[in-house]
């Protein structure tokens, strides 16, 4: 018996994963660029930048909230914090459960119940994303107080990632997330059970 080791065509790499995150990074950069345009000079006194920073992060959070209510408002900005939901919806879609409407052979009640739980899940993610922006604002204040400035946009992006991982990690480890994520999967399965199980 002979063996052929595994090979993969480069096409198997989902380039869309790269492009989606690239677009999200560009959206993040646009947010920061707007802030830089409005920000006082580096030599400005604390009350000036303090106010500017607060106003900017208030707008950033408002943009996040808007993307919750209408994901088409700024899909690339929304993608910055809905990675988990997007990944979940892909998994759900592979089981034949659409995020948009029930299939003809699926119970509308089961699908609506699932959507209800998914809405709760999205809200939990949104709270974590807002908490991450609060944390990032706090970290920027601390850095400013220490006289530290960012060298690059990427450095700020990495700070934003760290803040999201921190607030998300706290949420993930909480009892509420454990209960809700279990309920989400159970509700999804409820949809499948009323339709045709995926093979």
């Amino acid at each position: 018996m002979t063996d052929q080791n595994s090979t993969a065509e480069p096409g198997l790499f989902d380039v869309e994963l790269l492009l989606k995150q690239a677009r999200a990074y560009l959206a993040f950069g646009e947010q920061i660029r707007q802030f830089a345009e409005q920000s006082p000079d580096a030599g400005a006194q604390p009350p000036d930048w303090d106010t500017t920073l607060r106003q900017h992060f208030d707008r950033f959070k408002a943009a996040v909230a808007q993307s919750t209510e209408d994901s088409n408002a700024d899909p690339d900005l929304a993608r910055l914090w809905t990675l988990t939901l997007e990944s979940w919806q892909q998994a759900a879609s592979s089981l034949g459960v659409s995020a948009i409407a029930p299939r003809a052979d699926q119970s509308a009640d089961g699908w609506r119940a699932y959507q209800q739980v998914q809405g709760e899940y999205l809200e939990l993610l949104r709270q974590s994303a807002v908490a991450a922006l609060d944390l990032m604002e706090q970290r920027l204040r601390e850095r400013a107080a220490a006289g530290t400035v960012a060298d690059s946009l990427r450095e700020l992006f990495n700070l934003w990632v760290d803040c999201n991982e921190e607030t998300y990690g706290r949420m993930l480890r909480g009892a509420e997330y454990s209960e809700l994520s279990g309920r989400l999967l159970n509700a999804l399965l409820g949809c499948c059970a009323r339709g045709e199980p995926a093979s």
């Binding site: 995150q21 988990t84 979940w88 990632v161 999967l185």
Partner: peptide, 26 residues
């Protein structure tokens, strides 16, 4: 399904594993 397992593993650290990683890829 393997895709549900993938979701579970990625959901442990989504901003690094599904976001930052691809930005760094550039």
């Amino acid at each position: 399904p393997g895709q549900l397992l993938n979701f579970t593993f990625l959901s442990l650290s989504p901003f690094r594993l599904a976001g930052q990683k691809y930005v760094d890829l550039t």
